[in-house]
Amino acid sequence: MIQYTDKIREIAGRLLKDGTVEVFIGYRKGTVPMMNEPVLIRDPDQVDTLHWDVNCGLNLCNYLTRRTEKIGILATGCNSRNIVTHIIENQIKREQLYIVGIPCTGMVDHRAVKRAVGGKEILSAEQQGEKLIVKGADFEKTFEIKEILQSNCAVCRHRNPVEVDEMVADPVPEQEGVEPYKDVESVEGMEPRKKWEFFTRLISRCLRCYACRNACPLCYCPTCFVDESRPQWVGKSNDPTDTMTFHFLRAYHCAGRCTDCGACERVCPVGISMRQFTKKLNKDAEELFSWEAGLTLEQRPPLDVYRPDDYNDFIK
């Protein structure tokens, strides 16, 4: 999206020059196609490295935690909700931030593209409007972007940022009639044993590399429970039970906080769909507490407050 890129560079340059911000957090083109990477820019002369297209799926909020300077940051719908969550959880102050909002129509699932070209090496992937043109040594293929979206983007209901200081373009229409929890419901309908088999198979390839945790803006603890050794909460081997414990607890730590940005799935080297865990929690938060994370600065999250009418059917 060349218009967005130009506008982002212009805004970042202006903010850095007039001293509104000391650092600007955005994306630049990655060294590999479809892998744009986060970049922190301090020098207004370097804003031309900033870039925007449908491959900016990493969550920039990850780079805000406990920073002390004035920061300019790009924010799509989900990223802005993570920024709100960060503010609510006292990881950053609202006054420090200048949020540049991006109306987002979704990010491309790089694995789907890779599959569609038969796993061949992709040498370039250019976005042209609604299309993505993928080229390799001996092939060229054009994709409709809306057919190769990340699965979380396909069911996104908050494409426009919720908290912004400036927008790079007019808001896009929100998607109507999406069924965000269809896959969760299909698992809910299974017998306990089938559910266990489903999740065991889901995580069977897990290497315990913790990329999902590292990419997640919610996982900002100085020492993660999986890294602690005194006490050691969970085994460090790739024993299936330990792996399940890791995924279960990682997800649970995101309860009422996850914005379904999809960064965890995007970075997984073996393509595990770990959003199946967090989505169940999102569904519960929505059904039992009428809560979707990061939509407002005014309200405390459900696990943070007590209300006499809180859901408590599980307690005797």
């Binding site: 809910e188 306990p192 044993r193 999740f199 279960f248 997800a251 649970y252 307690i315 005797k316």
Partner: peptide, 20 residues
């Protein structure tokens, strides 16, 4: 917590919470 554990395949009836 109970909902998620049961979602991943722990049988309902195995996990109990009570305040006494």
């Amino acid at each position: 917590m109970k909902n998620l554990l049961e979602h991943i395949g722990i049988e309902p009836g195995r996990l109990h919470f009570s305040w006494i």
